[in-house]
Nucleic acid binder design. Structure first.
Lengths: 232, 232
DNA sequence: CGCTCTATTGATAAACCTCAAATACAGTGG
DNA sequence: CCACTGTATTTGAGGTTTATCAATAGAGCG
């Protein structure tokens, strides 16, 4: 049921390893440090010194950002094969977000000196790293546009579609978003409140677009959501 | 009155040239192509193939992003010494934004092959480029948090403070934001409407925090704006 | 079965947008 | 210098969206 990610998958699919051979990946992994995280534990905190970057090998992380008043948004979810904290590590700065594991999660961490040495030895790593950061930039710019210009229900639709593409798993009745996802989570990811999410999902359930339970969403009619998100 | 930026300033202040000697900068500039832009002209369009990156040497650019319904946000302003479109160029993708000049503006453009060759010759360029992209990511993530969690007037305060830090020029009566800046611009930069901006500025003017005219803002009490932006 | 956490729903209020109309301003040409 | 024109801005009224609060229902777990 949980999405896992074997080491051999890693070689094939991890964004950090594009263009590298399996033996090279093994060596690179050998220079990192494995961490096992219990569900709901924190890998790093917003504001801490960002010395490491991490590759998720099993499970998922949730990246959240808090403002001074204590309100939270979800910047991104990070799944197996994806890298996080590359920016903070490269910049020698503070982590701009907090990373929390959703279920049991395994990550490999490298500190900056190690990463720099690896980049010298395997220049593809540097390229992949830049590529990763650029994708993050593109994603958040799109979402910035959305949150500035679109209504709440359209943003919720987009959030669900994004999460579906990222963690969707085919079921007999539709596509399950295969992580525990509360109304509050969806709200934090869409820039709204859990009440509005709840009302919106109820309405969509009546129309047969989604089916939802406790921390669980199944998307029945993705096409309807797409055209709803893009309506004028 | 207009902020200009001589070639020698370039060597000292441009983010692309950190760590490089003046002679090296000259050579690098020699490999680029100068463009002169009339006010309000477009350097590149959202959706075009992103083959070049640009360093602004005089004037300013406004980067805007449009959604399918035609609503616009301002992603960023780019001033003399700053680089833009690095991400699109590196990624071989499409420009995610449109760049429009505010006044007469001069930029130097490099295409990807040239930039790659320069990075090989001067690795500092690669480092500076990454640094630039990371700064953009950090900035937009902060603003994403703000637009999700804060009220309109707080966001307007933050926008003005950001623009003040970026283009502020000391005057006898306060700090002028030294670009033509309409209520609509502020709205597009804050994720609201020109009407709300107008009302908010009127209120602040009564309190003596700002003084505003046609496309012109002078910030009289920055401290008041800061504490207003950060109130709970 | 009781406890806790999540979700639903209604009522209400606040924030903000939209539309319309009036006013102010800068530049232009007489 | 002044009238004219095209924007930019202001302001009011009204409406919509969305947040907030409160109370209830449901799900999972020991």
């Amino acid at each position: 049921m949980h999405r896992t990610f074997s080491i051999t998958d890693c070689f094939e699919r991890a964004e950090l390893f594009n263009g590298l051979a399996a033996t090279q990946c093994e060596k690179i992994i050998g220079h990192g440090i494995k961490h096992q995280l219990q569900p709901q534990s924190i890998l790093f905190h917003q504001g801490q010194k960002g010395t490491h970057c991490y590759l998720v090998t099993h499970g998922q992380l949730k990246l959240t950002k808090l403002n001074k008043q204590g309100k939270e948004v979800i910047i991104r979810y990070v799944g197996a094969g994806e890298l996080t904290a590359a920016a903070a590590m490269l910049k020698n700065g503070l982590y701009p977000v907090t990373a929390t594991s959703i279920h049991e999660t395994e990550v490999i961490g490298w500190d900056k000196p190690t990463m720099i040495a690896l980049m010298r030895q395997y220049p593809d790593i540097a390229i992949n790293l830049i590529d990763t950061v650029l994708s993050r930039l593109d994603d958040i710019q799109r979402r910035y546009l959305e949150v500035c210009t679109e209504q709440v229900d359209q943003r919720i639709a987009r959030s669900l579609l994004r999460l579906m593409r990222w963690a969707g798993s085919r079921q007999q009745d539709g596509i399950l978003i295969d992580i525990p996802l509360s109304r509050q989570n969806i709200a934090d990811y869409s820039g709204t409140t859990l009440y509005t999410v709840s009302r919106t999902l109820s309405a969509w359930e009546k129309r047969g677009w989604v089916k939802s339970g406790r921390e669980k969403i199944v998307i029945i009619d993705p096409h309807a959501l797409v055209s709803f998100a893009e309506q004028p």
